[in-house]
Design a protein around this nucleic acid. Structure first.
Length: 568
RNA sequence: GCUCCUGUGGUGUAGUCCGGCUAAGCAUACUGCCCUCUCAAGGCAGUGAUCUCGGGUUCAAAUCCCGACGGGAGCACCA
């Protein structure tokens, strides 16, 4: 073996020993050599013998001796390694060209937007942004039975609040004529047929993997059937089915529905149409004609990928790249309407904006900032593993945004009266924020105060400090307290507590949302209500402002007499 | 039941495609210290993972292969 190679081994062994308190291992040195110098990979046997000898030599040296050898021969080892900056954000895309990426968010206006919508919207928006591409909002409104203007509007409001911008805004139903055209094309090429079987039979045939008689009819018959769907047939009488593969393992491929008849009035188009495309058909066509290059959807659509590709192939249309991510739900905070609806009907939850819910509106009322939601969602990445995130993950992101400009206010719960003698002043000025310059507020005082019951219980000794005011020596403590103002050091380690002047104390209710469900069961104590006193300055704040009640936590002002607890 | 997806510290994830340069990175939580007239924020340090388990391939496996087990989803004329 040549000296150069031996030297290389020695260097790596020494470096490893140096990084691990003077001990190294031949296995690791081998791996490192082979990792950095691929040219050695052809002579593993030879090298590993050499490494064994070198490693045992080095391990016999003391740490000091090793250091000396390093200094003499390989001084560059001692230069601390620069940490490589981790790339922020979503993983890079394959087959993506800057400026040519088009993504989309296609919500169905059938409910209020929630954190799950936020995830889909943010991921797709982020990719469009990363690649300087285009982002489309497409209201997926092809089931008139479920969709309402109210939801349509709520989704827009939610997305707007999140700060998501779109280059194109459209409705799937804008392209009804195109769906018909493509539908006819499929029928005429024999790749789709009209099926008049009963719903139950279709379902059973799917399970049994048997084709029905309609699929054997000729194109002419299907054409007739198609005509009748626009007139004579009633809802349920006939559907258009894609000729997939009734034997396929993927049940989605077993001749799925392309069109069905729905007579319900559509929320924007009224009774203009009665033959509506199914989700799979509409998405396939829309993504293709909208120029969508990358479509990210949540995992429950994963089996649909094959179908969408098959439909587009059958029509000779361009296919987008599709990828999937896991659904996002918070622990004990269900998203599903099936669970939420009864809760609202029973009055256990006030409405879809109840602060315990994961809807965007609830999150907003609760004081969660859109920036925090975005960072949080991006931190989750594109994983397909089920994510049941604890809410405090979101909270910690939010705290950072909120802390910077939340006014600090005093608030006292379970109030106890405190009378202070010998107060030398009639008002104090207190900074609104400890670091940021947010001005000061003036608090008028006389000798009558409230302090928190809990602070009274935890009181040690007779000295307390009222924040921003001064030290108080307590002389009497039997339900009501009596104290005396004393001069004293401000940085002593006596208890520092907040207070409220009795004469201007403003009572508010604080709503404290807790986990809605615990182990699948509704948590009867999920909303705590606290009656507290706060400063009159509260009344001057705008609704929606974020406050930090000192030593309590962050709250969002909901109204003049109600605040909602955001988090600690 | 069938089919598909998934399984990394207390939690959420990076790394897995293309095995070695990471004795597993980051964030959060927790603990301690510093700062502080807040139990917040900020700064510093620390605890914490034989990468679900069992086999196999290889000089070398979180990474590839096989099997088991756990979790989730789909099996609608919903999206």
């Amino acid at each position: 073996m040549d000296e150069e190679a031996k030297n290389e081994i020695r260097k790596i062994a020494l470096q490893n020993a140096f990084e691990h308190e003077g001990k190294t291992q031949d296995k690791i040195v081998l791996a490192k050599i082979l990792g950095t110098k691929p040219e050695f990979r052809t002579r593993v046997k030879e090298i590993s013998e050499e490494i064994k000898t070198i490693v045992s030599e080095i391990n016999q040296l003391s740490f000091e001796e090793q250091k000396k050898v390093i200094e003499e021969n390989f001084p560059d080892i001692l230069i601390p390694k620069e940490k490589t900056e981790e790339r922020e954000g979503l993983p890079l895309l394959k087959n993506a060209e800057h400026g040519k990426v088009v993504t989309r968010f296609p919500p169905e206006p059938n409910g209020y937007p929630h954190i799950g919508h936020a995830k889909a919207a943010i991921i797709n928006a982020e990719y469009a942004k990363m690649y300087g591409g285009k982002f489309i909002l497409r209201m997926d409104d092809t089931n008139p039975e479920a969709e309402r203007m109210e939801y349509h509007a709520a989704i827009k409001v939610g997305l707007d609040w999140l700060g998501i911008k779109f280059d194109v805004i459209k409705n799937t139903s804008d392209d009804m004529e195109i769906f018909y055209e493509k539908g006819i094309e499929l029928i005429n090429s024999g790749k789709a047929y009209v099926c008049t079987c009963k719903r139950e039979d279709i379902s059973e045939n799917r399970r049994e993997r048997i084709a029905c008689k309609c699929s054997r009819e000729d194109i002419k018959q299907s054409n007739k059937g198609w005509e009748k769907m626009f007139g004579k047939f009633k809802p349920g009488d006939a559907i258009v089915r894609f000729r997939g593969d009734m034997k396929a393992d993927n049940a989605v491929m077993r001749d799925p529905v392309l069109f069905r008849i729905i007579e319900e009035k559509h929320y924007t188009l009224g009774n203009k149409y009665r033959v509506w495309p199914s989700y799979d058909f509409a998405v396939a066509i829309e993504d293709s004609i909208d120029g969508v290059t990358h479509a990210f959807r949540s995992k429950e659509f994963e089996l649909r990928k094959e179908l969408i590709d098959a439909i587009l192939d059958a029509l000779n249309m361009r296919k987008p790249y599709q990828d999937f991510f896991s659904r996002l739900e918070f622990k004990g905070m269900p998203i599903s309407k099936r669970i939420l609806k009864p809760l609202i009907e029973e009055g256990k939850v006030s409405w879809y904006d109840d602060p315990r819910l994961p809807t965007l509106e609830s999150l907003r009322r609760r004081g969660i900032k859109p920036e925090a939601i975005k960072k949080f969602i991006l931190s989750l990445g594109l994983t397909k593993a089920n994510t049941l995130a604890p809410f405090d993950a979101l909270e910690s992101f939010n705290r950072k945004f909120v802390d910077a400009d939340s006014i600090r206010l005093f608030m006292v719960s379970k109030p106890k009266k405190l009378t202070i003698k010998k107060l030398p002043f009639s008002f104090v000025e207190i900074a609104n924020h400890p670091i940021k310059n947010m001005g000061k507020r003036k608090i008028n005082i006389d000798e009558n105060f409230y302090i928190s019951g809990e602070d009274v219980e935890n009181m040690k000794g007779t000295q307390i400090r009222l924040l921003g005011l001064g030290n108080i020596k307590i002389s009497k403590n039997n339900g009501e307290l009596l104290g005396e103002f004393t001069e004293g050091e401000s940085n002593s380690d006596i208890q520092k507590i907040q207070w409220i002047p009795q004469k201007d104390a403003h009572m508010i209710k604080i709503l404290i949302p807790k986990q809605l469900f615990i182990d699948e069961k509704f948590n009867e104590d999920s909303l705590e209500e606290l009656e507290v006193y706060t400063e009159p300055h509260y009344l001057e704040l705008k609704d929606g402002e974020e406050i930090q009640f000192v030593r309590f936590g962050y709250c969002r002002k909901d109204s003049q007499n109600q605040a909602i607890f955001t988090h600690k």
